[in-house]
């Protein structure tokens, strides 16, 4: 369990975001403690991914405020770059760099962004690959890997960059169940690393097992949040009940 005295690493205050006429986030507020693991569930189009993308500035919020380590990350903030470096993102479509091999996919960003020497970057990349059990694939190019392997390289890339916060945007949605399982296992193995993780997922059992807290987002607002037991087993909100019912029927 997360200690109450731990500081809030992310503070989201009433953010709103529209795409044209469509309001996707309708006032979302959320505090995340350092080291907390939060799963975000909800149906497609409910704003889950947009929330993550706003935290990482891939989308600009229309109003509200996002603080990381108590520093605002809006466009005017001088701490913006620095705070963004603390967050990493794992995408549904992996987004590995196809012109780099596996080792370079991890080491090149370290050299370019963190100014590591080549030896240091290679060593760290190799060590990180070991934690996702892909040390035998260093010389392969992304196209030669399975989806699950690609996603594990993508996770390793964020780990190596030393991100304190990792945002997972449906990391297993492009994978078949077997490959999804191996990626979920990799994520689980990181649970005790002290990193803060926000995971958008459709794997309810996985969310139940790994999370400190689960958010159910519907129609641009957080409908329900609480411990996995509260949200998954004893949901209070009608929409949450409906959603979980449908999911249970499906699997």
């Amino acid at each position: 369990m997360i200690n109450n005295s731990v500081e809030n690493i992310i503070e989201i205050i009433d953010i709103r975001k529209s795409f044209g006429d469509l309001e996707v986030l309708k006032g979302v507020s959320l505090s995340v403690k350092k080291g907390e693991i939060i799963s975000i569930i909800g149906s497609s189009g409910s704003g889950k991914s947009t929330l993550l993308r706003c935290i990482n500035q891939l989308e600009q919020i229309d109003s509200g405020e996002i603080l990381i380590h108590k520093c605002s990350i809006n466009k005017k903030s001088i701490h913006r770059k620095e705070m963004l470096k603390k967050t990493g993102m794992v995408f549904q479509q992996f987004n590995l760099f196809p012109h780099y091999n596996v080792l370079q996919n991890i080491s090149k960003p370290l050299m370019t962004v963190n100014k590591f020497s080549k030896e240091k970057a290679y060593q760290l990349a190799l060590d990180t690959l070991k934690t996702v059990k892909l040390e035998d694939k260093t010389d392969n190019y992304p196209l030669q890997l399975s989806g699950g392997q690609k996603q594990r390289v993508a996770i390793a890339r964020e780990l190596a960059m030393g991100c304190e916060i990792i945002l997972f945007d449906e990391p297993t949605s492009a994978l078949d169940p077997e490959l999804a399982f191996e990626v979920l296992n990799t994520i689980k193995s990181l649970a005790n690393s002290g990193r803060t993780m926000l995971i958008v997922t459709h794997h309810i059992d996985f969310a139940k097992e790994i999370s400190d807290r689960i958010l159910f987002i519907d129609d641009g607002i957080i409908c329900e949040e609480g411990t996995p037991c509260q949200v998954i087993l004893n949901p209070e909100n009608d929409r949450t009940k409906q959603f979980l019912n449908k999911i249970n029927k499906l699997f």
Partner: peptide, 11 residues
Amino acid sequence: GQYEASYTLGY
């Protein structure tokens, strides 16, 4: 996705 990944990594 290549733009987004490199942005996220801090390029």
